[in-house]
């Protein structure tokens, strides 16, 4: 079975667990899947084994606590500690794919915003002048920051998994995080000095670049 089939089978089989066991198992599943530097296939295999074990134990009248103990987080950490790390080649592919998707989304969204602003709100021109050096510098800083934000999100989600955090508080945390992360990009753009050649740019270039990057990202994905 490949990784995709394991995940699909897991989704189906999980429904057979009792409500309590399912909650216990799914918390562990989320937490273990969020350990992003582990081999995905090995991760899914052990998750499948744990699920199969629970299903059989359930038929014998045992609960998740009977099988995996009172402290699911500790248990999940033990599992993660023994999982093999993702191989470097794959890691580079994933990073490359991530950067391409990020840049594609950035290019396409900025083009769409510009077009909407132009046609609906009568703001902005479709062609405008940009400082090439400034634009490139902005992107070079934005990529590592986006990565950092992703890692912060992953760590936050892991931290949150076994705690029953109040929905209002969670919403507040997301809101603050979203605001500061978008704000950070605006601060960079605002303080970046103008340098490099001034060139004529067209909004549709952004769209074309975005689509090309998206296709590239897709092809990297199918390589993995």
């Amino acid at each position: 079975m490949n990784t995709k089939e394991l995940i699909k089978a897991n989704n189906d089989k999980r429904k057979l667990l009792t409500k309590e066991t399912q909650k216990y198992y799914e918390d562990m599943l989320i937490y273990i899947r969020l350990s992003y530097d582990k081999s995905e296939h090995e991760t899914e295999e052990i998750l499948t084994e744990m699920l199969d074990h629970l299903l059989e134990a359930q038929e014998d009248g045992k609960t998740a606590v009977d099988v995996f103990g009172e402290n699911p987080k500790q248990y999940a950490d033990d599992i993660i500690g023994e999982l093999p790390k993702i191989v470097t080649k794959k890691r580079i592919k994933y990073m490359g794919m991530g950067i391409l998707y990020f840049l594609a989304a950035l290019a396409i969204l900025s083009a769409l915003f510009n077009v909407v602003e132009h046609y609906l709100l009568d703001l902005n021109e479709l062609t405008y002048k940009i400082y090439l050096g400034t634009q490139i510098a902005n992107l070079m800083i934005a990529i590592p920051i986006a990565f950092l934000q992703l890692i912060v999100i992953l760590h936050y989600l892991r931290w949150e998994t076994f705690k029953n955090i109040n929905k209002v508080l969670a919403f507040f945390i997301y809101w603050i995080f979203g605001l500061t992360s978008i704000g950070l990009f605006f601060v960079i753009i605002y303080f970046m000095p103008s340098f490099g050649p001034l060139i004529e740019w067209n909004v549709w270039f952004n769209l074309i670049i975005g689509v090309v990057l998206y296709v590239l990202a897709r092809s990297v994905k199918s390589f993995i």
Partner: peptide
């Protein structure tokens, strides 16, 4: 032993 405790060991033995 608790049933779950075999899985970390199985992972280690495979590694």
């Amino acid at each position: 032993v608790s049933e779950g405790s075999i899985y970390p060991v199985l992972l280690r033995l495979q590694k």
